[in-house]
Each structure stands twice: as structure tokens, then as C-alpha cells.
Amino acid sequence: MFKRLMMVALLVIAPLSAATAADQTNPYKLMDEAAQKTFDRLKNEQPQIRANPDYLRTIVDQELLPYVQVKYAGALVLGQYYKSATPAQREAYFAAFREYLKQAYGQALAMYHGQTYQIAPEQPLGDKTIVPIRVTIIDPNGRPPVRLDFQWRKNSQTGNWQAYDMIAEGVSMITTKQNEWGTLLRTKGIDGLTAQLKSISQQKITLEEKK
């Protein structure tokens, strides 16, 4: 169930391209415009997507990853294993993690069937560096609404905000991946996880038929 919630949630996290980005210092504006741009692209490019579902990787690479804190999220997933990894191991892992996100997020976007969304009203940021933004996803086919909290983090150097995690039903996506990959990290280390991520990233994206 959580895996499905995570995939549905990713439908609204794909941010804007650099040329049309919203105010990078306001995570609420980023979330709002990102959702609108993403849904528009999914709707307008269905012919290309249906002809070649792996085209979704391109959308992810162009529109999402430049505005997601990939390395920060990847380091959180590694936890204690990050500090013990060599620079070469980290570089290989982050490259594999990025390719994994292209496949995983692309597969999530393949679930698009006309969903709509509501974003919580903007709250004062103050001096906060981590801000959760509640998004409610509404399914046109009558499924119950899904309420999610996207975690946005302020870059201490640039002042810009980027998304790095999502919490559904009190469970963090980062925590879920830590639990899912924990045994592999304990037995085969970061190299074993890197190899698995490379394998997963090679899987073809498949479209979910409308139910």
C-alpha cells in the first residue's frame, strides 16, 4: 500500500525546468507551479508516452532531478554507511541512485490517469530550513484521497528550496528505503546496493492501464 502511495505522490513532485522555475526561495510556489507544469506535460505528451513509456525517463531527467536534492536524499538512505564509504564508492552510488530515480519516478508518472491535487495554504517560513507541505491527491475514479507531506529543505548556501522526502501515513519514503535496503547494505555494503540500483534502473517502464 505504501509503495502505491509513494508512486501516486511522485506525480506531483516533478519540479519546473530552470527556464520557467518559480521563486526558488518559496517552496509553496515551487510546489504549486511544479504540480501544474507536471500535470500539463503528462496530459499533453501522452502520444509520446504511450508510444514509448521510457520517454518518461527524459521527462524526469529534464523536469524533476535538477530540483530534487538527489545527493542529500541518497546520503540519508545510506545512513551510517555513508561515512564509511570511499569517495569513489559515493560517486558510483550517487550515479546509480540518480539512474534509479529516473526509472522509479518514471514508473510513478506512468500512473497518471487524470488525477488532480490540492496544496495546503502557504504558511510563514520564518527562519525554518525544513518545511512540510501537505498535498491532497484526488483520484477521478473514486479512490479515497491521498494526503501527503512533502519535505522541502532550504539550501544554506543559495537560499533555494528543494524537495527531498515524502511522508505518507506517518511513514517517510527515506525511512522506507532504509528499511528495504538495510539488509543488503549490511551483507554486501554500498557496492552491493550500487549494483542492485544499476540493475533496477535497467527495467523498462510500463504503463498502468486505467481501472
Rank of each mutant, 00 (worst) to 15 (best):
L56E: 05
Q162G: 06
L125I: 07
V131L: 09
T116L: 15
I133K: 09
D61A: 10
K198Q: 13
R4D: 05
T58W: 08
I190C: 06
R153T: 01
L78H: 02
V131R: 10
V70M: 08
V70H: 11
K177C: 07
L125V: 14
L148N: 07
Q115P: 11
R90E: 03
Y55R: 07
K3G: 01
A18Q: 12
Y112W: 04
Y117D: 04
K204H: 11
E208Q: 13
T206F: 15
I167N: 04
Q107H: 13
Q196F: 04
L16R: 02
K177Q: 13
S199Y: 14
V135G: 02
K198R: 10
R90C: 06
V135R: 03
D61H: 11
G74N: 00
D23W: 08
P132Y: 10
K43Q: 07
M31S: 01
A110N: 15
F94N: 09
T129V: 09
I205V: 07
L76K: 01
E63L: 01
G79W: 00
D165P: 00
L185C: 08
L76I: 08
E122D: 10
I138G: 11
S84P: 11
N160Y: 13
I133T: 06
G126Q: 11
L185W: 12
R153V: 00
N26Y: 07
S84T: 11
Q178C: 02
A21T: 10
I205H: 11
Q80M: 09
Y112C: 02
R186A: 00
G159R: 13
Y117N: 04
I130H: 11
A85Y: 06
K37Q: 13
Q48V: 09
A104L: 06
L30P: 07
K177S: 08
P121G: 12
Q123H: 07
S17R: 12
P124V: 13
M7A: 02
R41H: 05
Q118L: 13
L76P: 02
L10I: 10
E209H: 14
R186L: 04
D32H: 12
E91L: 12
A163F: 12
Y81P: 03
V146P: 02
L78R: 02
G142K: 09
A92H: 13
M173P: 01
A18I: 14
P145A: 00
P53G: 14
A85T: 10
V77S: 09
L30T: 05
T206H: 13
F97M: 10
E99R: 06
N26D: 09
Q48W: 10
T116A: 00
Y93Q: 02
E209R: 13
I13V: 08
T158Y: 06
V146R: 08
E99N: 15
P121R: 08
Q107A: 13
I138K: 12
P27E: 04
P145C: 04
N52G: 05
A108C: 03
T158C: 03
K37A: 08
L185E: 05
A92S: 14
Q48F: 06
M166Y: 06
Q107L: 14
Y55N: 13
K3N: 08
N26C: 08
V12D: 00
G170M: 01
E209C: 11
L101K: 03
L109S: 00
F150T: 05
R90G: 04
L10K: 01
F2A: 01
P145V: 07
K43A: 13
E99P: 14
R186S: 11
A75L: 01
F94P: 05
F94L: 07
K83A: 07
T187M: 08
A18F: 14
G79S: 05
L185Y: 11
L78G: 01
Q151W: 05
K29A: 14
K83H: 04
E63I: 02
F39I: 03
G79V: 02
L197G: 05
T58C: 07
S156D: 00
T116C: 15
P132N: 07
T129Q: 08
G126C: 11
A18W: 14
K210M: 10
D149V: 06
Y100G: 09
S17P: 09
S201Y: 15
T183N: 06
E180K: 04
L10R: 00
W161D: 00
V60E: 02
G142P: 09
Q157V: 05
Q151D: 04
T129L: 11
P124I: 12
G182L: 09
N26L: 06
L109F: 03
G170R: 01
Q80I: 11
M173G: 05
N179R: 10
L16I: 12
V131E: 09
G126N: 08
I59V: 12
M111P: 04
I174Y: 13
R134H: 01
K102C: 13
G106I: 04
V77C: 05
A51T: 14
Y55F: 14
P87Q: 09
D149I: 00
P27M: 06
E209L: 11
I49Y: 04
L16P: 08
I138F: 13
T129S: 09
A120V: 14
Q202A: 03
L197S: 04
G74T: 01
I137F: 13
Q202V: 08
K177R: 13
L42K: 03
A18R: 08
L148M: 03
Y67R: 04
E33Y: 04
E91N: 14
M1W: 00
Y112V: 03
V8Y: 15
I133D: 01
L30F: 06
E208I: 10
V77H: 15
L16M: 14
R186I: 01
N179Y: 05
L64S: 01
T38R: 00
A19H: 05
Q80W: 06
K102G: 14
T158A: 01
E45Y: 12
L184F: 05
E33L: 04
I190M: 05
V68A: 03
P27Y: 04
G126F: 11
L42H: 05
E122N: 10
A120E: 13
I200M: 10
D23Q: 07
A195C: 12
T176R: 03
F97A: 05
D40Y: 06
Q103C: 12
Q69Y: 01
I133S: 02
E33N: 04
D191W: 10
G114F: 04
R41I: 02
D54T: 14
K43L: 07
K3F: 05
Q46M: 08
K83Y: 01
T20V: 13
K128S: 14
L76E: 01
P47N: 07
Q107I: 15
Y164C: 00
Y117K: 04
G189W: 10
T187K: 14
Q69H: 11
L101T: 15
Q46G: 05
Y93V: 04
I190R: 12
G114I: 07
T136K: 14
A95N: 12
I205D: 06
V171F: 00
E99W: 11
R153F: 00
D165L: 00
L16V: 12
M31W: 04
A104K: 01
Q36M: 15
Q36G: 08
P15N: 15
A9Q: 03
T158W: 11
D32N: 07
L64H: 01
L76M: 05
L109E: 15
I59S: 07
R41C: 09
F39H: 01
M6E: 00
D139C: 14
K154S: 10
A9H: 02
L185D: 01
T129N: 10
A35W: 09
E169C: 11
P132W: 10
A51Y: 07
A75N: 01
V70T: 13
N44S: 13
F2P: 01
Q123I: 10
M173E: 04
V8W: 15
P15W: 05
D127C: 10
K83I: 06
Q103T: 13
L193P: 05
A21K: 12
W161M: 02
G114Q: 11
I49K: 05
P53I: 10
L64D: 01
Q62I: 09
M31N: 04
K177T: 14
K177H: 14
A73V: 02
P27A: 09
A18V: 13
L78N: 04
V77P: 08
A96H: 12
D165T: 04
P87T: 12
N141M: 11
D139A: 00
K102A: 14
Q151C: 03
Y112H: 04
E91G: 10
A168K: 08
K210R: 10
A73G: 15
G74I: 00
K211M: 12
T136V: 11
A9P: 02
P15E: 06
K198H: 10
K177V: 07
Y82W: 09
